[in-house]
């Protein structure tokens, strides 16, 4: 039988997490964010689906937050820090290339009158 018991705040703090663990709250946040995501994304112009995907690539590099928390932990063995640093490297790659290429593509989308010189 699996009991979904919340660990104590102290335990999580000691392990490097942020704030009080409240997984029901977290599930609510997840549910609401997914609904907002669906509604916002459904309105994205089909013209822009490629830039949308590179933008969300950059956004999903939010994993950098977790990577930072892992890397900066003061009590962790060296190999854990190393894993975190590689994760920072991967995420930063996505942040930089994702935002830059999105902007590069979006700059190309022009309306009729702007193209006609």
């Amino acid at each position: 039988m699996i009991m979904l018991a919340a660990p104590t705040e102290a335990a999580v703090h000691g392990a490097g997490g942020h704030g009080q663990l409240d997984f029901m709250g977290a599930l609510f946040v997840f549910m609401l964010a997914t609904f907002i995501g669906f509604m916002v994304i459904q309105r994205v112009s089909r013209l822009l689906h490629t830039p949308l995907m590179s933008l969300t690539n950059a956004i999903s590099a939010i994993a950098v937050v977790g990577a930072l928390i892992v890397s900066a932990g003061k009590d962790s063995p060296g190999y854990i820090t190393a894993l975190g640093l590689i994760a920072i490297f991967c995420s930063t790659t996505n942040i930089v290339s994702g935002f830059l290429i999105t902007d590069r593509m979006l700059k190309m989308f022009k309306k009729q009158e702007k193209v006609a010189k």
């Binding site: 669906f38 949308l52 937050v65």
Partner: peptide
Amino acid sequence: SAVAMGFVLNNKLLITAGALDGSSGLIL
């Protein structure tokens, strides 16, 4: 996977940003 990381780290920013990305991929 970023959402799951958010649950592990109890980090709501990871959950929201991950969910936005996840729903975008799903809609596409």
